[in-house]
């Protein structure tokens, strides 16, 4: 299989999977927006109405962190089992195993792009005015995709060897939510001397930048954005190499 064929196949599979997924429910594609919208509604009810935190735009602040983080945790958890789930197919045809997590990551990427539009709408209806800094958001989105991909690929590459990792991945993504500043503004909660350590978490950093651009008209910190991108690209190459290294091991591992 040439690399061109591989990309064609991956893209085709992604769109057909989305089509298949949509055909399984009555409201089909509408669920992509409906599901996160319900999510926002519940958060609004809990934080805005019951806890009375309506005043300072807390819901918008929350969603600008929650939506990007949800994309990350969904992608990683959905990919963790991707190579195992591809066991049947990889025992029939010779195919690069990175195909399986790639399809999952791209599928989630497309769905998340739609959810991000919802997030922008939410920001707009809360009386935030679009500013020039908003153009950083698509860039942040792409860099977040670059961060998600290697983590998703590595977890899918290791789960066939250690099936128990699936549960660890699940726990880590839930725990990671608390370490990424979804429910709080790190500048108010985390001690100043620990800010640098806190921002070592690329998701915490990206979420702070999303909020900066959308809610505070601030450009991202280009230096740390560059660092994240560089490390993510290296990690991505390494994660692909790992799946290539074990390529012929997987068909036997996942069939047992």
């Amino acid at each position: 299989m040439t690399s061109n064929q591989f990309f064609q196949l991956t893209i085709t599979k992604v769109f057909l999977n989305l089509k298949a997924e949509a055909s399984k429910s009555y409201l089909s594609y509408l669920w992509w927006v409906l599901e996160p919208a319900l999510f926002v509604a519940v958060f609004y009810l809990v934080f805005g109405v019951f806890l009375g935190n309506r005043s300072e735009g807390f819901i918008v602040f929350l969603m600008c962190g929650k939506i990007p983080y949800l994309w990350f945790s969904r992608s990683v958890n959905n990919s963790a089992n991707a190579i195992v789930a591809g066991g049947g197919l990889m025992n029939q045809v010779s195919i690069p195993k990175v195909f399986f997590p790639s399809v999952v990551v791209l599928q989630d990427l497309i769905k998340s792009a739609v959810v991000f539009l919802l997030m922008i709408v939410l920001v707009l209806i809360n009386n935030y005015k679009p500013s020039i800094e908003w153009i950083a958001v698509p860039l942040l989105f792409l860099i977040q995709a670059l961060v998600i991909a290697p983590i998703a690929i590595i977890s899918s590459a290791l789960v066939p060897f250690i099936p128990d990792l699936k549960f660890i991945v699940m726990t880590m993504t839930t725990m990671g939510m608390f370490a990424s500043g979804i429910f709080y503004d790190y500048r108010k909660v985390v001690l100043p001397e620990h800010h640098d350590a806190f921002l070592l978490n690329p998701l915490a950093n990206l979420i702070a930048m999303y909020r900066g651009a959308l809610l505070e008209n601030q450009w991202p910190d280009w230096q740390s954005l560059g660092n994240i991108t560089g490390i993510a690209i290296i990690a991505l190459i390494m994660s692909i190499k790992i799946t290539q290294f074990f390529d012929l091991k997987y068909p036997r591992l996942v069939i047992r």
């Binding site: 061109n4 064929q5 064609q8 196949l9 085709t12 057909l16 197919l89 045809v93 195919i95």
Partner: peptide, 15 residues
Amino acid sequence: RDNAIVSAMLLGNTK
């Protein structure tokens, strides 16, 4: 039709 496309690609055909 859709399955015929993906399946043929998996068997090594271009799109």
